[in-house]
Design a protein around this nucleic acid. Structure first.
Length: 632
DNA sequence: TACATACAC
DNA sequence: GATGGTGTATGTA
């Protein structure tokens, strides 16, 4: 989904500090951060004599956090770097969020993580303070060599598109239930929301927010349970369209995909107008066939700024598989990337695919209009799309809307990093184009908040913030310091971002490296219950492994205590395993050790997980004739 | 290799 | 009253 409230909460778990469970003592004080802006400024002047405009407000906001009992933890704040945040009363929303959370075990854990982060930042500031001007000068020379290489290697020849469905799950539910259309609503459960519609976002209700907090922010919020089967079906309809423009497109989740339009755009130049002509079907078209209908849509309407202007009559959808809110509703929607090379591959849904691109195209175009219907005589609005990238993307979005009655947003740029940022720019139901031109890229990058860049999350953003870095311009100005404070991998990534660089080739599907199953439950602490849960998880994992014909060399268990502390324990076995018994043997042993460690206290858990990983760096056999593949 | 952390969706 | 599940990458020891 495109927005998050507490991004990636589940994975950002507390460091394992067993001895500290009941004594959360942390010597480092939050005020340590207060010296950061000044330090940041003083160092900036070394590396950048031409006087960068360091945002001091950015730096100081890093210190607004973690004063226990007072301010709002930055970790828990509403993320304001997402689309659709205009005109929100952030203060009020954050206050409600904090009040709803305060005193909970979750909150206490967040508080600890916040302190830990403050400590890390303070350590970083100490390192910064110890850097000499000479060191900075040297670093700058080094970094600028890299800059030269990077700039020289810049590839502006590709046209990459990132396509993102607007409020996907929520939009699907609204489409199928008109009663929801004028209400603030979210998809998920009282425990966690997967996404919310734009009306609910006005109240601060976001993806990855627990439903009960959503209700506090917006008492009228309607929460609809997830229905993944339906989203998968819609997703495969969208993919049917995308495939025609890039057969190697890469889905990132049910609602998001990257495409490389470069080759298609060449073909497009000689595509006759007829092939670029579509009809916006009227409601009558469909009614005449007692089929689903869509309101008469003009091209302008389609591409306007308002979301879901499409009116759809009730579809006879009654797939009400009620997925268990606690467990099933938040399954990751990620699906195997679809790089089927004209081969009919089952990876993009259950529908059988035609064999050639032409057939796919014909088939899809057929599905986009009512059965046996002649648009010319029915007076459907005729739309002809042009041949440039923007027109093609408009066409793609138009066809998606005609096919699914849902809107999508898109970003068009010379690389994946930029395309991704762009797709958020005019959301919902909009698109944004960055031409393949250095100046245009730099102009776009200039004031871009670093937090908007894919890969720069909450933690990195806060670290950068402490250095006075909030935009990509700052990132470039501070390149020398960054190369000294961060690892080579991190700093070169930041440098690439600062230069507006990103991947220009969409990677083909890579081999899976691990498979896991995990569940949250109400507290379990009796060993018999814990072993039983472990057994169930291993059983589920074994089934998943066998379904995909995979085996793993390293078996790990994941435990989350009732205080939200996460531990992971693993063991590598001599031979790859996939059966229930083999996996459980290892997992049981690992669990046993943890239970013993705790004694005489019980091990009190709220989550348990089991996973199998393949060994690092070894390539699995490419062509497998046997059924078994291996995580070697 | 083991474990923790960060990130995305 | 109540804060998810799956997968990848990376840093460190």
């Amino acid at each position: 989904m495109e927005s998050c409230w507490l991004e990636g909460e589940g994975q950002e778990e507390e460091e394992d500090m067993e001895e500290d469970w009941s004594a959360p003592v942390d010597g480092r004080e939050a005020q340590d951060q207060h010296h950061s802006p000044a330090l940041a400024r003083s160092t900036v002047s070394f590396s950048s004599p031409d006087g960068p405009s360091v945002a001091s407000d950015g730096a100081s906001s890093a210190s607004s956090s973690s004063a226990e009992g007072t301010g709002i933890m930055t970790r828990m704040e509403l993320n304001t770097f997402k689309a659709g945040m205009e005109g929100l009363d952030k203060e009020k929303i954050n206050k409600i969020i904090m009040e709803a959370s305060k005193g909970s075990r979750f909150y206490e854990n967040e508080l600890r993580k916040e302190k830990q982060m403050a400590g890390r930042i303070s350590a970083m500031m100490d390192r910064l303070a110890s850097i000499t001007p000479q060191q900075q000068q040297e670093a700058l020379l080094q970094v600028d060599k890299m800059v030269e290489d990077l700039v020289e290697g810049r590839d502006l020849s590709r046209t990459i598109v990132h396509l993102d469905m607007d409020a996907f799950y929520a939009a699907v539910e609204m489409r199928d239930n008109p009663a929801l259309r004028d209400k603030p609503m979210a998809v998920g459960g009282i425990g966690m929301l997967s996404t919310s519609n734009y009306l609910a976002r006005k109240y601060g209700v976001r993806a990855a927010m627990p439903g009960f907090i959503g209700k506090k922010l917006c008492p009228d919020l309607v929460i609809v349970p997830t229905n993944f089967d339906k989203y998968r079906t819609v997703s495969s309809q969208v993919r049917d369209v995308l495939r025609q423009y890039d057969p190697y497109f890469a889905p990132m989740s049910l609602d998001e995909a990257y495409m490389d339009l470069t080759e298609y755009l060449e073909l497009r130049k000689s595509l006759p107008e007829e092939e670029r002509t579509f009809y916006a079907h009227t409601e009558e078209c469909f009614m005449s066939k007692e089929n689903a209908a869509v309101d008469n849509q003009k091209k302008e309407d389609m591409l306007g700024e308002t979301q879901a202007s499409v009116k759809v009559p009730e579809l006879s959808v009654n797939s009400t598989t009620n997925i268990d809110d606690e467990d099933g509703s938040l399954e990751k929607s990620k699906v195997t990337p679809c790089h089927d090379d004209n081969v009919s591959s089952p990876c993009c849904g259950t529908e059988e695919l035609p064999e050639t691109c032409e057939q796919i195209a014909k088939d899809v175009k057929e599905k986009e209009k009512p059965e046996g219907h002649d648009c010319e005589t029915m007076g459907c609005e005729k739309v002809v799309f042009g041949c440039d990238a923007e027109e093609v993307v408009r066409e793609i979005r138009f066809r998606i809307q005609q096919r699914t009655y849902l809107t999508a947003s898109a970003g068009i740029a010379p690389n994946m990093m930029l395309a991704k940022v762009c797709s958020d720019q005019n959301k919902p139901n909009g698109q944004f184009y960055i031409p393949s031109d250095c100046e245009a890229i730099m102009d776009f990058i200039k004031d871009l908040p670093v937090r908007k860049v894919c890969g720069i999350g909450k933690v990195m953003a806060q670290q950068l913030n402490a250095l006075g870095i909030t935009t990509c311009t700052h990132l470039y100005e501070q390149r020398a310091v960054l190369s000294l404070l961060f690892s080579p991998i991190s700093s070169s990534h930041l440098l690439r971002v600062a230069l507006g660089l990103g991947a220009t080739r969409i990677e083909r599907e890579s081999e899976r490296k691990s498979m896991s199953v995990e569940r949250t439950f109400s507290e379990l602490s009796k060993p018999s219950e814990l072993y039983r849960k472990c057994w169930e998880l291993c059983e589920a994992l074994a089934k998943d492994l066998q379904d995909e014909g995979l085996k793993g060399r390293t078996v790990t268990i994941k435990l989350k205590t009732v205080n939200f502390e996460v531990k992971q324990r693993g063991q590598t076995v001599p031979r790859a395993v996939s059966s229930m018994n083999e996996i459980y043997d290892v997992a049981e042993e690992l669990l046993k050790m943890e239970i013993q460690q705790c004694q005489p206290q019980p091990l009190r858990l709220r989550l348990m997980g089991s996973s199998a990983k393949r060994r690092k760096q070894e390539k699995p056999p490419t062509k497998t004739t046997t059924l078994d593949r291996f995580f070697l």
